[in-house]
Amino acid sequence: MSELVRLTEITKVYQGGVTGALNGVSLTVEEGEFTAVMGPSGSGKTTLLNLVAGLDRPTSGSVTVAGSDLGPLGETALARFRRDHIGFVFQFFHLLPNLTVLENVLIPAQLKSRVSSEAAGRELLAQLGIAELADRYPAKLSGGQQQRVSIARALINRPTLLLADEPTGALDTRSGDEVMELLRQLHRQGKTVLLVTHDAKLATRYAARVVSVMDGRIVDDARLETADREASDVIKVRGEETR
């Protein structure tokens, strides 16, 4: 496995507040990993994801993704980097209401080349099980469907890295599970996934690596085992014992 992301001694200071700030964060992510960044709100986990995505710049320290040091890149180069390497899934989908599902999915592709990749877009929608929604408008869709559309949009340019910031936060349990199953499938197909969540159950269910962020610092980086253990090794039911 080769290294895909390297954060070195990152500090991020926000004027007028400490919420979301980072303080000396270093982290590397290997290609093909499914990593969860876990922490309470305001811990800096979203800031960390935004820095990896090139959506924000650190106050000090360096961010290298897929061999590119993002520090020296100007706005245009940074936009090109995001377009070529990053797929981003947000909590609140961020779909454009005046565009159809297919048009939303194709936005990043149209930024890349003037040739329409409509066929690729339709194929992606089919893979995600929403082919029949292609010509509908976002407002007519359920939350789970909207999130699938946003995943299709994130994948249209075949990104190196898939970033997801609380992707189930606005969904009911069942739609949330379905969205997470999609991310799991994408990971099994070789995609590198970086998931930000406050939810330990979700993090440990899908990610074999759980990075805990607290108060702007990484306080733990756990690589978990993936084993099918016997029920009796995982749970022990004990009755009330008498002495």
Binding site: T204, A208, A222, L224, T226, A227, V234
Partner: peptide
Amino acid sequence: LQRLRDLNR
């Protein structure tokens, strides 16, 4: 966390 992962599985 490991326990949670085992339980999830």
